[in-house]
């Protein structure tokens, strides 16, 4: 295993190194003026400098707040509706067609409506994040809960557990792998959407920093927030995977 793993890691780092080398080559050969493509060193040193700047960190904190507020709302609504749609025919019959209509709608198109109703501040961005993240979570929860082996539920009902209690103490835990997969997709979507919302209309946050820099053609400062949000996305994804592994200790490995 180990002997094979090392060359594969090398192989995998090859395209990443190539991209960086191409970037460096283009700038140092003078083929790309720094106003269009700043050299990598300039971007990364600026990034390092910004990460200690309280103003920049304040913008990042604003973005994170909106991200988690929207994501939390999406998890609460998505998981609850997903479980209830499995547990109750009535809820399923109501939720099903509405999801069918709303899921393929590009939620970003609702952003102007959210701005009109909720204003230009946090609320409209949080609403957009929640609207975008809720559907993968809801669908994954519904799929997971409706695919739970009925005999698992029967085993619980036989001991005297009520159907309602079994829905949350047996069906939901049994569907946890699927629910958490949906949440992880929702988390990455939240990360992307909050940034885009801030780019389209905001006075603060990382997305706003990118647009602000582009208006004054400070190219280096356009790269920095973009890289920050991408690293944030990677970190959240990795963190969530670690959490998932802990929570799913008893479940068989997924292929």
């Amino acid at each position: 295993m180990m002997r094979r793993a090392i060359p594969e890691t090398l192989l995998g780092s090859l395209p990443v190194v190539l991209v960086l080398a191409l970037w460096q080559g283009l700038t140092s050969a003078g083929m790309a003026p720094p106003s269009l493509l700043p050299p990598p060193a300039a971007v990364f040193s600026r990034l390092a400098q910004q990460l200690t700047d309280p103003v920049f960190l304040g913008h990042a904190a604003t973005t994170l707040f909106r991200l988690f507020a929207g994501f939390t709302i999406a998890v609460a609504i998505g998981v609850a509706l997903g479980v209830l749609a499995t547990g109750s025919r009535t809820v399923g019959a109501l939720v099903g067609p509405v999801v069918r209509v709303l899921a393929p709608v590009p939620k970003i198109a609702l952003y102007p409506a959210f701005i009109l109703i909720l204003g230009f501040e946090h609320a409209s961005k949080i609403a957009l994040v929640a609207a975008d993240a809720v559907f993968p979570i809801l669908l994954a929860t519904y799929q997971g809960t409706s695919a739970v082996e009925p005999k698992l539920v029967w085993s619980a009902l036989a001991t005297g557990t009520s159907r309602r209690k079994a829905l949350f103490t047996i069906v939901l835990p049994a569907a946890l792998p699927s629910v958490l997969t949906g949440c992880r997709i929702g988390l990455v979507i939240s990360c992307i959407v909050v940034f885009l919302a801030e780019m389209i209309s905001s006075t603060n946050g990382l997305g706003h920093l990118l647009v602000y820099a582009s208006r004054s053609f400070r190219t280096v400062d356009m790269f920095v927030p973009l890289i920050t949000i991408s690293i944030l996305g990677l970190a959240l994804n990795a963190g969530f995977n670690a959490l998932r592994a802990r929570l799913l200790a008893g479940f068989p490995e997924e292929s």
């Binding site: 990455v188 959407v193 885009l196 990118l210 582009s214 356009m222 973009l226 944030l232 996305g233």
Partner: peptide
């Protein structure tokens, strides 16, 4: 994967 693709627009 986590890069917001539409955010590349200005660049």
């Amino acid at each position: 994967y986590p890069v917001p693709k539409a955010a590349l627009m200005p660049i």
